[in-house]
Design a protein around this nucleic acid. Structure first.
Lengths: 158, 158
DNA sequence: GTTCCTGCAAAATTTTTGCATCAGT
DNA sequence: ACTGATGCAAAAATTTTGCAGGAAC
């Protein structure tokens, strides 16, 4: 199972973002760019608070929460970022790679760890099922709940 | 595709709730019972606000939001109710039928309608995939996003 | 110079908690 | 009577909005 996004894909996404934002007539401000740069370095989703904390921890000015939310909103509208709701209080956000890197999430109910899930058979079943219903499917989210290997009871790990 | 929960399953769930709540040493208060009775009549998920509105519309005293949330929290802890997060601002809740009635949701991004989704192949793929990862899966949620038949562009209907 | 972006603060929304009171066992 | 359930209001947490100032084009 692939577990990380390649450095190539990250660079591609950052470039794709720059192009799409320029294309949309958006100006290159500091806060939004910082959010994009941070997300480009992530393998999985981050909450708005986590994004701001990460930006606060790195050199340079720290954007306000409002700017983080506005940046995420804009990026989500442009389909550059995918909003993920894992059942926590806060929504999370992750890069929406244009060419692929489609994945889902498993949340450990013990430690709260979030794992990436990639399964081609699952995607196929989903697409096949989508054809059978009176609904035009444009996207989907899958969240597994359970326990990660570290937290799973011995003998029940899978 | 089955689209509704049978009257039998609803009655079973209500009875199951009563038994489980008695078993847990919970008293039969008015607000929680009203929430159970209302959920037992539902085919799909309702938000806390929708639940309270529905209770306000029917005869009898209207419980406060806090009681609705507390009832839902208790019922979720007892695995009698399943919390569903469809990406809206508010979480939704639906009966967790013990024997079956496992389903997922499709949300129309035009009109906001929520459809039940039941697909055995999808469930099988999910269980097969669960065996292949280092994660002990105890539950899962699937949300499809797109457009319902009424809102789908002509010729693109699923 | 115009328009968009940003930051701060206030507002809106959803959910939780404190506390006094009421109801079930 | 004891213990838990309920209602109201206040608080907490997350997200959105208003407005003034600054930056990009």
């Amino acid at each position: 199972m692939r577990c990380v996004t390649t450095a190539r894909a990250r660079a591609d996404w950052a470039r794709h973002c720059d192009a799409a934002m320029r294309d949309a007539g958006l100006r290159s401000g500091g806060a939004r760019q910082a959010v994009v740069d941070l997300l480009a370095r992530q393998d999985c989703c981050l909450s708005a608070q986590e994004i701001r904390d990460a930006l606060a921890a790195q050199p340079g000015p720290t954007p306000g929460m409002a700017s983080v939310y506005r940046a995420l909103d804009t990026l989500t509208d442009l389909h550059l970022v995918h909003k993920v709701d894992l059942g926590d209080a806060a929504a999370k956000f992750e890069p929406a790679h244009p060419g692929g890197d489609h994945h889902h999430h498993a949340v450990c109910r013990e430690c709260g760890a979030v794992m990436r899930i990639e399964d081609d058979d699952l995607e196929q079943a989903l697409h096949a099922g989508a054809d059978r219903i009176a609904f035009h499917v444009e996207g989907h989210d899958i969240t597994l709940h359970g326990r990660c290997r570290a937290c799973a009871p011995a003998g029940h790990g899978g």
